[in-house]
Amino acid sequence: MANLGERLHNAVQERGISYRQLAADLTDAGGLDVTSQYLTMLKRDPTANPTLKVLRALADYLGKSVGWLIGEDPGPLSEIAVAAAGLSEESQAVVMRVIELARRADALGTFISEPDSPAWVRQAALLGLERQAEVVSMYGGHVLPAPLQTDDYARAIAERMLRPSQAPLTPDEVVGVTAMRREGVLGSGRQLWVLVDESVLRRMVGGPRVHLAQLDRLIEQAKDPAGVTVQILPLAEPAAVVDVTAFSILRFTEPHRSDVLVTDGDTVVTDLPTVEGWRQMFAMLSHAAMQPDSSIELLNRVRHEYATHLD
């Protein structure tokens, strides 16, 4: 069965146009920001997975259906259509948004954040992105990044979360998502590099015993050669002020996939200049932070302080 690249090539030849012309027409008429290089990549890369918006624009311009363009067996698609039959317009819209977000999580290069999406949809998309990343760089300025949190630490945060959300997750759901993110990022061969403000280590979350167990877990992770690179930004010598509580940068092995920025927990940004600016900020913070060995020493000191309070 023909794949997307073959179908696209055949349709472009049928129209007798160049990929440069196709990109220009889609940009002018369809409002898409695509290049001839991107379209050529779709033709050559069998794993390419553009967004539904791009597929619809290509299909409309080339006089084809989306189903024909992607060359998929109509069987599974028909099953989805049958399953969605009879749903209200609102429910059908939810189904379409889930499908679109799933395609974007696979395509990645053109992922567009949708802050108004339900919280579980945003978290599901983020899970997919983190599992595909080769290098995950995270900054935690208020609490520890989710993949490093114990279940009790995550639950304590969820139970005290003050930020409103369109569809907030329950504490049990937060613990479940945190566990999946932890499983997806740790011990999977990918590199995890974490910068943590010292205030995070000293901020009591969930009571002394929960916090002490979290410090023990973080020390264990930091000492593991195949685990996490942890650097602490010390309070004694503040070198920078970051106006967000957390952000992460995800890097991928595929050459056609751009790095992405994640802010505010689950808001994904792919604008290249923006991502590059935040990458430079992470590099500056890393330069100002304590080296990994010194960071572990500080972790042990803070852990001793809390252990003393429990005795």
Rank of each mutant, 00 (worst) to 15 (best):
M1W: 06
R7V: 07
H9I: 00
N10D: 14
E14G: 12
E14I: 00
R15K: 15
I17A: 11
R20V: 12
A24W: 05
T27W: 03
A29N: 14
G30K: 06
V34A: 09
T35N: 07
S36F: 05
Q37I: 10
L42W: 01
T51A: 14
L55K: 06
L55W: 04
L55D: 07
R56G: 12
A59F: 07
K64L: 15
G71Y: 11
E72D: 14
G75Q: 12
P76E: 00
I80L: 15
G86S: 07
L87G: 11
A102H: 10
A102M: 10
A105Q: 13
D106F: 01
T110N: 11
T110P: 03
F111K: 01
I112H: 12
I112F: 02
P115H: 06
S117W: 12
A119P: 04
V121P: 09
Q123R: 11
Q123Y: 07
A124P: 04
L126E: 04
Q132K: 12
S137T: 10
S137M: 12
G141Y: 04
G141L: 05
H142T: 13
P145M: 06
P147T: 04
T150G: 13
T150E: 05
I157Q: 05
R160A: 13
Q166R: 15
P168N: 08
L169F: 08
P171W: 03
D172I: 02
D172Y: 03
E183N: 13
G184Y: 03
G189Y: 03
E198G: 06
V200F: 02
R202A: 03
G206L: 08
G207Y: 11
G207E: 04
P208A: 01
R209Q: 14
V210Q: 02
I219F: 02
A222V: 02
K223G: 02
P225D: 05
A226H: 13
A226P: 00
G227S: 03
V228C: 04
V230L: 14
Q231C: 08
I232H: 06
I232V: 14
L233C: 13
L235A: 10
A236K: 13
P238I: 04
V241T: 13
V244I: 11
T245F: 01
T245Q: 14
E254S: 12
P255C: 01
H256F: 08
R257W: 03
T263S: 07
D271C: 06
P273Y: 09
E276W: 01
W278M: 10
Q280E: 14
F282M: 07
M284Y: 12
L285I: 02
L285W: 05
H287K: 15
D293Q: 14
S295V: 09
I296V: 15
L298R: 15
L298M: 14
N300Y: 02
V302P: 09
V302S: 03
R303I: 00
